[in-house]
Amino acid sequence: MRALTDGWLMAGRNMRHVVRAPEEIILYFTLPIMFVLVFGYVFGSGMTVPGQGSYREFLLPGVFVMTMLYGLGATASAIAVDAGRGVVDRFRSLPMARSALLSGRAGADLVRACLEMTTLVVCGLLVGWQWREGIGPALAAVALILLLRVAMTWVGILFGLLVPNPDTVAVVVFPLAFPLTALSNVFVAPELMPDWLGAIAAWNPLSATVAAARDLFGNPGLGGDSWPARHALELAIAWPLALIAVAAPAAVRSYRRLGR
């Protein structure tokens, strides 16, 4: 109970930060818009999809998920900045829940992710993407993507605490995140890759969410007979939950050890 109310207060703090320093809001929109336009038009013009359908429509659920992954960097550096601030000493000497600083970050980042998601969907619709299975499944797909974002948030929080230097965070996150998207079904269907690479891509947690979202949106590009491809929906739920189960307690533990 206290963990919830304190987390809520800390989420409020993070959102007030955004209101007081609104230039950061621009970032909420630029990355999603840029990703949709760059990938949608650069790749979307020339590539083909297994089966039929437009590549752009194939690509966009992948871009949604990729944007969520890259949000990890913002989370990690926000936590690293916080951990380096003197105010953390006050938080740590207050009788508040130990998890609150972190869950407050996770809460504020979920709000941010909702704004990003809205931007992504609007941009997607403008470039010709659409959902074909009705609003219910489309919302379910969005929920899966946001679930992955929550998992990425906790990974980012853990990361920000382990590398408590905001500059280092920025340098490390991109080289880690980029191969993770390339080795998934975001840009290319795993069936079109060499076998071993395709297997890696199929098991990639991002691929599960992307495949499940494509299915629910009714976008092209499903298929593949691999076990993970056939169980995309289950994996799209299980992977993020597993990541949260590992990263969240580890993050709280390393927060407790700060300054010791």
Partner: peptide, 10 residues
């Protein structure tokens, strides 16, 4: 403490 432990943005 020695360094003001307040939130600098708020």
């Amino acid at each position: 403490g020695q360094y003001a432990a307040v939130d600098e943005v708020l």
